[in-house]
Amino acid sequence: MQGHSNYVTSVSFSPDGLQIASGSGDNTIRIWDAHTGKEIREPLRGHTFNVNSVSFSPDGKCLASASYDKTVRLWDVETGQRIGQPLEGHVGWVMCVAFSPDGNRIVSGSLDHTLQLWAAQTGQAIGEPLRGHSHRIWSVAFSPDGKHIASGSADNTIRLWDAETCQPVGDPLRGHDSSVWSVAYSPDGASIVSGSDDMTIRIWDAQTRQTVLGSLQGHEKAVTSVAFSPDGQYIVSGSWDGRIRIWDAQTGQTVAGPWQAHGGEYGVFSVAFSPDGKHLVSGGHDKLVKIWDGEVD
């Protein structure tokens, strides 16, 4: 799917699987029909710098976006109009954003080393920034029950946070030798997967915070994006090597791919499963959004 005039940093399926949102270095967000690949409306404009992350609300009516302009913005998916004022508070580029499972809160992570919780209805900051990482934050994810948040950082660690108290849970998860670019919870919340600049993937026990599988090797450059399939059986990964792989979440073996997905120096920036697990979407340095068969034979 062509339309962006700069690299595609983030892609996400709507909860019903009918639409795809993409954020780009061209400062815009585009909404696509997941079946036809056609744009549904004009690009969403408002950010004044790169859009780094996009996240649908659980009901699919709202989209959150994070940007180098240090803000988070909310959008009405049906109309493409901005909702309220930009969410301001971070003093560094905002790299990642995610909705809570109940849709009431949003979490963002920034180059200022902090996370911030926001009230989705009002756009107001909830409490003080979450501090603990010693370097920029690349990725955030809510647990499926909404009780915890995982964050991946350039300090080579993953931290878990209590989403109610905003306090860290236990010690950081250590094992990667370089920046943690992406983190995601399994559908049952029992596991966390992470992708790193060290070219590996690790799977962690969310309760014990110990590595249960890793390091999964195969990519030749940084692993920039990871996600569990909706049934939790598989993990998809995208890398700056331009390739996508699907892994067995129990054994760590590659079960599909690698596919040469995107060109350009930085290859794949983002991958995601469709809600039914039948398709994948990817965005890359070549300015393209692509849809793939996500089913494993």
Rank of each mutant, 00 (worst) to 15 (best):
G263A: 10
L213D: 05
W240A: 12
Q217A: 03
Y266G: 09
W247C: 07
W247Y: 06
S270R: 00
Q233K: 15
G218A: 13
G232C: 12
Y266N: 15
T211F: 02
S237N: 05
G252H: 07
V268G: 14
S229Y: 12
V271D: 13
A272D: 14
V236P: 10
G232A: 13
Y234C: 06
Q233Y: 10
G257W: 01
F228A: 00
V236M: 06
Y234P: 05
I235Y: 01
R245S: 15
G214F: 02
V223W: 07
V236A: 13
A256I: 11
V255T: 13
R243G: 06
I235W: 07
I235C: 06
S270Y: 00
Q250K: 14
V255Y: 10
Y266K: 15
A249N: 04
H262S: 11
Q250E: 15
F269S: 12
E220K: 12
T254F: 07
S270A: 06
S229G: 11
G264D: 08
S239R: 03
I235H: 03
V226A: 08
I235K: 00
Q260M: 06
G264P: 00
E265A: 04
G232Q: 11
R243V: 00
Y234E: 09
S215L: 06
G238A: 09
V226Y: 11
Q260Y: 02
E265P: 02
A227H: 05
Q253L: 14
V212G: 09
S239G: 08
G264F: 09
V212Y: 05
F273R: 13
F269T: 01
V226Q: 11
S225I: 02
